[in-house]
């Protein structure tokens, strides 16, 4: 027998799993225009995609290592900031991922309509 807190934990875990893949898509989508970490985090939050700093920055580094992003340190607002943007490979991958996303979305809609 499971308690309500177990159910809540289960839901949270499933929600996290669901969000994990879509976060990459959201980050790549946002970085079609150049941004630095904090503005990117805000842009995502403004579109109801909250992401912790502890998740975002390691994710940005991973995507950069994979060649999907490029970054450079530049001065802005009297401070040095690290700006990220989509690389050509990132743009190509984003297009493919979006097509995949749309296909999943339409499949799910069909399934859920019953």
């Amino acid at each position: 027998m499971t308690s309500s807190s177990d159910n809540a934990n289960l839901f949270e875990n499933l929600k996290l799993e669901l969000r994990r893949g879509s976060l990459v898509l959201a980050v790549l989508g946002c970085l079609r225009s150049e941004q630095y970490g904090y503005t990117l985090r805000k842009a995502l939050a403004d579109r109801r995609t909250d992401i912790e700093e502890g998740t975002l920055y390691p994710l940005l580094r991973r995507l950069e290592t994979q060649g999907l992003l490029r970054s450079e340190w530049r001065e802005a607002d009297k401070r040095n900031k690290r700006f990220y943007r989509l690389s050509p490979l990132g743009a190509e991958v984003l297009e493919k991922l979006l097509a995949e996303w749309k296909s999943i979305d339409s499949s799910l809609n069909e399934i859920l309509k019953g």
């Binding site: 630095y36 970490g37 904090y38 985090r41 805000k42 700093e53 920055y57 580094r61 340190w73 401070r79 040095n80 900031k81 690290r82």
Partner: peptide, 20 residues
């Protein structure tokens, strides 16, 4: 190998959030 770079970014993020 990535310590300084990560710290610079974290520091900037904290400061940006405070200013914001």
């Amino acid at each position: 190998d990535r310590r300084d770079d990560i710290l610079r970014e974290l520091s900037d993020d904290i400061e940006s959030e405070v200013e914001d």
